[in-house]
């Protein structure tokens, strides 16, 4: 059983306080969706867990161990960023070789996305020759390749075509059965309804909602996430204006 715990996490960029005293606990077997307006702090939160952004204060614990100045914990994590870009003369197979070299202790790889995205056909191509969508498919396949226990997916379907998005969603649903921690940031309410068990809504660097989708349904048969969010957020936004 893996856990991620954020304790009183704060981060500012200059005068702009992006994360304000974030407390959060995530555990295996749950897909957590991170939602919020652009610039609300979603990506900063995900990047803090990955060690890309260094918090000003607070703690990040992965499996109860502080990740500050550690990099070994990233063996547990598969990450798919919003934007993927690689050296233009590097071949696709060379990028796979780098990841294999860095994580090569695991013999069995998860090649499902490599097959479904038809990446075997482009392994000899340079990244400079690939479209943005193809680069994103490669990134997606790499994120799942070494059976990570923790998956951090930053808008995983945003740059993918409809068919590839569906392949990605199905893959996430499959991984959900494997008792992993899966965190997805998304703007698409229907996607969150399909994939997630828990919703975290961030506004101006603060967690406004942290509830399971079951709790959000509040007894009704069907969840209309867009409508529910509007109802919950209306008083918060009203107070903010006044």
């Amino acid at each position: 059983m893996n856990t991620i715990e954020l304790r009183d996490l704060c981060k500012s960029f200059g005068k702009n306080q992006v994360l304000k005293n974030i407390d959060l606990q995530l555990k295996s077997g749950e897909v957590t969706a991170l939602m919020g307006p652009n610039g609300s702090g979603k990506t900063t939160l995900l990047k803090s867990i990955l060690g890309l952004v260094i918090p000003d204060s607070g703690k990040i614990l992965v499996n109860n161990a502080d990740v500050k100045n550690d990099f070994h914990y990233r063996n547990l994590i598969g990450y798919m960023p919003q934007i993927a870009n690689y050296p233009e003369n590097m071949k696709v197979r060379e990028l796979f070789a780098i990841v294999k070299d860095l994580r090569g202790h695991k013999e069995i790889t998860d090649d499902e996305l490599i097959d479904n995205f038809k990446l075997n056909e482009i392994t000899g191509k340079n990244f400079g020759q690939l479209s943005g969508g193809y680069k994103q498919r490669v990134t997606g396949a790499l994120a799942f390749l070494y059976h990570p226990e923790i998956m951090i997916l930053d808008e995983p379907t945003a740059s993918l075509d409809p068919l590839s998005s569906e392949i990605m969603r199905n893959k996430i649903l499959k991984e959900k059965q494997k008792d992993k921690i899966i965190i997805i940031s998304s703007h698409i309410a229907s996607e969150v309804e399909t994939l997630a068990d828990r919703l975290i809504y961030i506004l101006d660097g603060k967690i406004i909602i942290n509830k399971t989708l079951k709790e959000l349904k509040n007894g009704s048969q069907e969840l209309k996430l867009g409508k529910t969010l509007t109802e919950i957020l209306a008083p918060v936004l009203h107070n903010k204006k006044s």
Binding site: L50, F71, R74, Y79
Partner: peptide, 9 residues
């Protein structure tokens, strides 16, 4: 960024 998300210092 991609390399920094791998288990490497």
């Amino acid at each position: 960024e991609f390399l920094l998300t791998q288990p490497v210092a």
